[in-house]
Design a protein around this nucleic acid. Sequence first.
RNA 1: GUGGGUGUAGCUCAGUCGGUAGAGCACCUGGUUGUGGUCCAGGGGGCCGCGGGUUCAAGUCCCGUCACUCACCCCA
Length: 432
Amino acid sequence: MTEYQPTAPYRGTRDFLPDEMSVRTQVFHRLYDVIERFGFRRYDGPQLEPAEIYEAKSGEEIANQQLYTLTDQGGRRLALRPEMTPSAARMVAGNAGSLQFPVRWYSHPNCHRYERPQRGRVREHWQINVDIFGSEAASCEIEMFELIDSMMRSLGADEDTFVIRVNDRQVLSAALTELVGVRTDQLGEVFALVDRWEKYDSERLAADAAEIGLDDKQFAGLTDVLAAGTSLLDELPAEVTGNSNVVRALRSSSAGLIRFDPHIVRGLAYYTSTVFEVFDTSGENNRALFGGGRYADLAGLFTPKQIPGIGFGMGDVTLFDFLDTHGLSPAPRSEVDVVVIPVTAELDDAARTVARTLRTAGLRTSVPLEPRKLGKEITRADRAGARAVVIVGAEEWQDGTVTVRDLGSGNQRQVPHEEAAETISTLLGTDR
RNA sequence: GUGGGUGUAGCUCAGUCGGUAGAGCACCUGGUUGUGGUCCAGGGGGCCGCGGGUUCAAGUCCCGUCACUCACCCCA
């Protein structure tokens, strides 16, 4: 017996059939529209990059376990990009001489990570990346928060369905060293502990803290710091809070969009101060929808020029989990507006003539590709989402007329074929 | 990489005490010439995930394996 290849896509990757693609396209276009309204311009780059650019910066987990690598025929080690930021940094560094900083850029690449698929996580995802390069101003943070809020609103999300939680690693570091007495060399491990704080019970947290070398009093102090919320800022010296863009954002008119939260640290090694994550408030999606942060010198791998930046990545998997949870995914768009049906095969050419004028008028129009009975063809047109059909019959065609039938009401009338487009446009209204 | 759950028609699922495969939906055709949705009749579709074992007999029991899925790790 013949062995057939499997039809399912490779583990952790997805096919997008037209209905699903239509939903995705609508959502993404709303987001692109909002992002561009904030003055960001779209860029793109290769899926393949030298493996080294990820091994240097992205954090050990990604480089060691999650990277798809290959060797090209010239022996070069390449990787499927696991994220876009290093590519963006490479492009910015390579063109730094001609760019007018600060630049606002966005992209929508597919990214690959080798990991076990689960809710919110697959091996290939499409991630909208939004970055500002070349500025350290707090305005960057504020613009990001405004943008994120506008993006979520554009998808129909109410303010109580999501929350932007914000922290500053510099502030947290100061709190840990000055209020808890954490040594500088312990900071990395304590950050990792903070990152999983809300997932573990207190016993496990205490055990992990002890392993890092914190005593009971320090563990209690750490617990207090994380629970403090905004009041933590009052306990820190002014030279710490005075330098924080997060604090500046909290004192701006945009403060209502965000919530200061010491728990947020994020895993990626290159974030240096501001970090933020967007969460679903419903409890259905326990991981962050998306997040980002500020990096003091991301392009350092490519150029001696110090180029700071801030940005975030919004993954499609968690985004659609959110939209589906809240009933916000749009319906797929219909296949066509109108189908032109010839009653007999001899009228195929006449139908095509009519279709030509409808298409010129901007109507999405199809003509049956195979002969079928009129009733069958009307059924198919209805299922394809057509709002109307044009029936081309022998006698009417000799008179230069066709029948326009409204599939919603079942009403139909005979019109000169040149007027069919106008008749249908009126029928469809202005919502096309 | 670790642990749990689930694999039967395109989809959702049933299948008793082991006895050789079913429903609903979807799809196709017909119900007379050029009119859809409802209704009626008919039809196509199944390596029961895969391999092995037990048995006269396995969708069903046992072992292995693969896939999907949820969680852990980590992260978008």
